[in-house]
């Protein structure tokens, strides 16, 4: 009854499956096929999106074999992360743990071990879901995205990249080729929190990331970003500005929390109501400040 079936299981009516090993080749294919080609890296999003419809895709551009896009490198004043770096590799990277602990923490809460081993940071960015878990940390750490087409390259600020739910400024001739995050010399503290209905395999109801850099007890730089609270992951610059130049002890946590609540625009959906999200955002903002305060005291 149970026997080996060596028949080809399906037809051969697809057109192309490209699996280039160099970025140059990939950019050429991208340039030629534009929106006619589906990009695939770790496949953990697109295979869900195209579940039961995979046979409808005519052209695939599989960039997973491009070794140059898989590196994590320390540059002079930044860390450069290749877009094919997986969530698991982020968790395991000492460099990232050391400099961007909130990014590691966010990566650890994505999906499940099975998803983290395959899903890539570039995929998380390019899918551009408002609930993408790595996005608030990238905003809060002021990451820059390197984009290339066959002819041109450009570098954009992470908070200019996202334009709407699952929408971004990437052109159909471009690929994301790197994520560059500046390293700070200051004393950096960070906080990451994901709210969801389960601990694993859950799309975030809300995420909040706070990064504070101190110099002589004064806040020198603040990065505050929230996910699942607006059409795009948002950086709350107005609130960041209010914290600058102050000591933690001079901040009114409740007031800042209230401000967070007012500056986000979440929706009601399956994962939570607008009201719930606003209240939770305010609560975790207080948690964030309290946690950083505690960490600084205990040194």
């Amino acid at each position: 009854m149970k026997q080996e079936n060596n028949q080809p299981i399906s037809g051969t009516d697809f057109k192309n499956y490209f699996q280039p090993s160099s970025l140059k080749e990939a950019l050429e294919i991208r340039d030629k096929y534009r929106s006619e080609v589906k990009l695939v890296a770790g496949a953990t999003d697109i295979f869900v999106q195209y579940n039961e419809k995979l046979h409808e895709v005519e052209n695939w551009l599989d960039i997973s074999r491009i070794e140059d896009l898989k590196k994590i490198e320390k540059k002079e004043k930044s860390i450069f992360i290749g877009p094919l770096v997986t969530h698991l590799e982020i968790i395991k990277s000492d460099l990232i743990n050391k400099h961007f602990s909130a990014l590691s923490a966010a990566a650890l809460e994505v999906g499940s071990p099975q998803i983290r081993s395959r899903g890539t940071i570039g995929g998380n960015i390019c899918t551009s879901s408002p609930a993408g878990d790595l996005l608030p940390p990238l905003l809060a750490y002021e990451a820059k995205f390197h984009l290339s087409s066959r002819k041109k390259s450009r570098i954009v600020e992470s908070d200019e990249f996202f334009t709407g739910p699952k929408k971004n400024i990437l052109k159909d001739s471009e690929l994301l080729t790197g994520i560059e995050i500046p390293i700070s010399d200051a004393e950096v503290y960070s906080f990451w929190k994901k709210i969801g209905r389960r601990k694993a395999l859950v799309i975030s109801t809300l995420t909040l990331n706070l990064v504070l850099e101190f110099e002589n007890d004064l806040i020198k730089r603040a990065g505050l970003a929230v996910g699942s609270a607006a059409p795009v992951p948002v950086r709350l610059k107005k609130i960041e500005e209010k914290m600058l130049g102050k000591k933690l002890s001079q901040l009114d946590y409740k007031k800042i929390a209230e401000e967070v609540k007012n500056r986000i625009s979440p929706i009601d959906d399956l994962r939570g109501t607008k009201e719930y999200r606003e209240d939770v955002a305010a609560d975790i903002m207080v948690n964030a400040l309290e946690k950083i305060e505690k960490e600084r005291v205990s040194g």
Binding site: A43, T44, F47, W60, S112, R118
Partner: peptide, 24 residues
């Protein structure tokens, strides 16, 4: 859709959901 883990296998030493791995 990679949600249940029933299709889990170990590929190149890593845990993967085989329903989300393109055969190529």
């Amino acid at each position: 859709k990679g949600e249940c883990g029933a299709c889990t296998v170990i590929m190149d030493g890593e845990l993967v959901a085989s329903c989300l791995v393109p055969a190529p």
